[in-house]
Amino acid sequence: MVNLKELSKRPELLSGGHRLCSGCGAGIIARQVMMAAADRPVVVANATGCLEVSTTIYPFSAWKAPWFHSAFENAAASCSGIEAAYKALKRTGKVNKDIRFITFGGDGGTYDIGFQSLSGAMERRHRMLYVCYNNEAYMNTGIQRSSATPLGAYASTSPVGKVKKGKEQIKKDLTKVMVAHNIPYVAQSAVGYWNDLITKTQKALDIDGPTFINVLQPCRLGWGYNPADTAVIGRMAVETCFWPIYEVVDGKYKINVKPKEKKPIEEYLKPQSRFKHLLRPENAGIVAEIQKNIDENWAWLLMMEECTNR
């Protein structure tokens, strides 16, 4: 259990004065991850995206830790190079501190355009924590669909019209793909569970190898809800089992939050304008399909938890 009073004594590594939207979940994720990391030297690499653009508008940077950005699709590769430099300079004695490395990427920079460099970095087993702040669309360029966009959701390139009813495909399960890299630590978390995210970050940073945390990030602009509810929406995703919170440590699954009662998906869909059209009677079939996918995935996770811990 994380002690917030103790945590508050650490230096704040992300200052205010950045230009993320009011109520932005990415700001919450970045802050909580950096809170967890602030007890040791860390270097941060960032993919192009909302977080990068909004926090480093020249001449103002919100980052108090060493921070680096070069392009969109290569955050994991850049961080690979930074970590390789660390190994080399440590060997030659130019660096003597223990430094940890964190990479941030949105779902565009992680699931899609940065997928290859992420996969490569994980396979090469660089010691880095990769955090995906997953807002399920390309928010920085104006809410275009990504492979993380869920079935039925509106996005500006999977719009709702007379013929099409939002995104027609189910989302990619990147967390599973990361598990398939056989790296020591893979986890899902969500905004709304500070204790979970901070604990997972600390755990990941202590592991000598590549680690990956996929954090669901409600986006007030792209998802269309009241900005004050960013954490509430995140919790709703977990309570409906739309976004289960779990971790896979050396191949063993652990579901960190098991809702006492799985809420129906409509409760998650209702407050978000990206799903508004799904609540119309003619789209009930899509909602049923979403629910079916959730139920199957949840059953699969429970099974994985059971059989990997036997």
């Binding site: 590769a77 850049s78 690979s80 190079g81 930074i82 430099a85 080399a88």
Partner: peptide, 11 residues
């Protein structure tokens, strides 16, 4: 990209 990261890191 890795060379760029490494060079920025001091290598």
């Amino acid at each position: 990209s890795a060379c760029i990261g490494a060079s920025a890191a001091g290598a």
